[in-house]
Amino acid sequence: MIRRLILALALLFAPASAQAYGFFTHEAIARIALMNVRPETARMVRAMLRGAPPLLQTPECKVATPEQAATWPDCVRNLGERFSYTASWHYQNVDICKPFDLKTACKDGNCVSAQIERQVKLIQNRTVPAREKAMALVFLIHFVGDLHAPPHGGDRGDRGGNDVKASYGPVTAKWLNLHSIWDSPLAERAVTTPPSPFRVYSPEERAALGSGSVEDWSRQSWEASRDAAYGLALGDACGPKPARPVTVTPEAIEKMVPAQRLQIERAGLRLARMLDEALDPAKAFVPEKKPPYRGG
């Protein structure tokens, strides 16, 4: 009861700016990943991040550790025009009420799944300057987390559930909506519910949870958004738009927690895999030279 009261008070007074996919959750995903990468990968990640602050020059947004890197791309969105071009890279609006269609949602490459693949290529490209590699590493750490947040992976034309006002059980607040519930209180509950996700996973677990392509992960996030984020909250994921704020009942929350927990563990182990691949010297390349651009 005391824990619930503390949670309720924290939710009531939490600032709206904290509702990007929770800083706590992004840090947790980075921590899981660094516990499950190859030792040489962990050393390279930490070394690159230690050298990142003077390269990226964002004293307002720290970036020297994996945990700081995991939240940096959300922090810099508050720096005005400098990073405004990255806004659409944090999500993809794949319609949960139609057949899965990633190509239409990401036709211009300005979506989270396309940016994950782009950051890996930038890290592997031997000709990319150190500053761009550092930024690519930071974006990769963050975007793998974003892709696995269900409302970032699919919605029903409501800005990932931001337009669906909701209460979290008995907790109500002006800033609460379906998206913010999944990004913050539900995600934090999933991470803190035993057993701890902060461990070295077995090869069998890494193979089961970390496998698949970025498109496969996109489909899973879309399914989780449809079935858990919307389906459990609304009853009918594709029914009429709610006319009043939705109450996410304690019974629904109990069913949502395992779905969210699974996505967080998947994100951590898949990020570990992506870091191992991106920083594998054998996969570094020099791009073929293209004819010079003539303009016109």
Rank of each mutant, 00 (worst) to 15 (best):
Arg4Ala: 15
Leu5Gly: 14
Leu12Trp: 10
Ser17Gln: 13
Ala18Val: 07
Ala18Met: 13
Gln19Gly: 09
His26Phe: 07
Ile29Phe: 09
Ala30Gly: 15
Ile32His: 12
Ala33Ser: 12
Val37Glu: 04
Arg38Val: 08
Met44His: 03
Arg46Gln: 14
Ala52Thr: 07
Pro53Thr: 07
Pro59Ile: 11
Cys61Arg: 11
Ala69Arg: 10
Asp74Gly: 12
Tyr85Trp: 08
His90Glu: 13
Tyr91His: 13
Gln92Ala: 14
Cys97Gly: 12
Asp108Glu: 03
Gly109Ser: 03
Cys111Gln: 02
Val112Gly: 01
Arg118Met: 01
Pro129Trp: 01
Ala130His: 03
Lys133Met: 07
Phe143Gln: 07
Leu147Met: 10
Pro150Leu: 10
Pro150Lys: 10
Pro151Leu: 07
His152Phe: 06
Asp155Asn: 13
Arg156Gln: 10
Gly157Ile: 11
Lys165Asn: 07
Ala166Glu: 05
Ala166Tyr: 09
Val171Met: 13
Thr172Lys: 14
Leu176Trp: 04
Leu176Met: 11
Asn177Tyr: 00
Leu178Ser: 06
Ser180Lys: 09
Asp183Glu: 12
Asp183Trp: 00
Ser184Met: 00
Glu188Tyr: 01
Pro197Val: 01
Tyr201Thr: 06
Glu205Thr: 03
Leu209Phe: 06
Ser211Asp: 04
Gly212Pro: 01
Gly212Asn: 02
Asp216Lys: 04
Ser225Thr: 11
Ser225Gly: 13
Pro240Leu: 11
Pro245Cys: 06
Val248His: 11
Glu251Tyr: 03
Lys255Ala: 03
Met256Trp: 06
Val257Met: 05
Gln260Leu: 07
Arg261Gly: 11
Arg266Glu: 14
Leu271Asn: 14
Asp280Thr: 15
Ala282Ile: 06
Val286Gln: 02
Pro291Cys: 04
Tyr293Phe: 08
Gly296Arg: 09
